[in-house]
């Protein structure tokens, strides 16, 4: 009888160990996924702050590109969000010169990006989120939303 009990216990022990290891690996995957989502949400949160939000119409994924370009000139904001690096990139329509930085006089599709907070020296890890960059197109006489990406590097996002 003792023999049966010992083997049963060993068997259950092995099953428990396998189950725990499988559960732990799932947990690690879930943690990584949650961190990723949190970082992406953090990048996306920028569309909601008044300094970037496009308010004439309801658009949760829109960034007012004109406001962002104006904000680039204000140096006091650089330490405000605890962000090391912040770039808005034009994805589609494909920019004519993607290496050219946008300014109040050069707008998409003639430029590819704008560094609101320029990158510090050295390599930094960034998180990206898809957004719409909205600006007034003089030629079309209307607001135009182009597909863009926010590249962000913050102390609590970088992991």
């Amino acid at each position: 009888m003792a023999f049966v009990l010992v083997f049963t216990m060993i068997f259950f022990g092995i099953v428990a160990v396998i189950y725990t290891s499988v559960s732990l690996s799932n947990l690690r995957e879930q943690v990584a996924e949650l961190r990723e989502r949190q970082a992406l949400e953090r990048a996306r949160q920028l569309t909601g702050v008044p300094e970037f939000a496009f308010t004439p119409i309801s658009c949760s994924s829109c960034i007012d590109f004109d406001k962002a370009l104006a904000l680039k000139q204000v140096r006091t904001y650089q330490d405000f969000w605890n962000i090391k690096f912040l770039r808005l990139e034009v994805v589609y329509p494909t920019p004519i010169d993607k290496d050219k930085e946008c300014s109040l006089s050069v707008l998409p599709p003639n430029c590819g990006y704008v560094d609101i907070i320029p990158s510090p020296s050295g390599n930094i890890k960034t998180k990206t989120a898809f957004v719409d960059l909205v600006f007034w197109d003089k030629n079309k006489g209307a607001y135009v939303k182009v597909l863009g990406r926010v590249h962000i590097s913050a102390f609590d996002v970088e992991r």
Binding site: E36, R37, L40, E41, R44, C59, S60, S61, C62, Y92, A129, F130, V131, D132, K140, A142, Y143, V144, K145, V146, L147, G148
Partner: peptide, 19 residues
């Protein structure tokens, strides 16, 4: 995927050339 979800949100708001 959060990335694809955000892309779809942004894609739906994208302005086309169709006037």
């Amino acid at each position: 995927s959060a990335e694809v979800s955000q892309f779809l949100d942004a894609l739906m708001e994208l302005t086309t050339d169709c006037r």
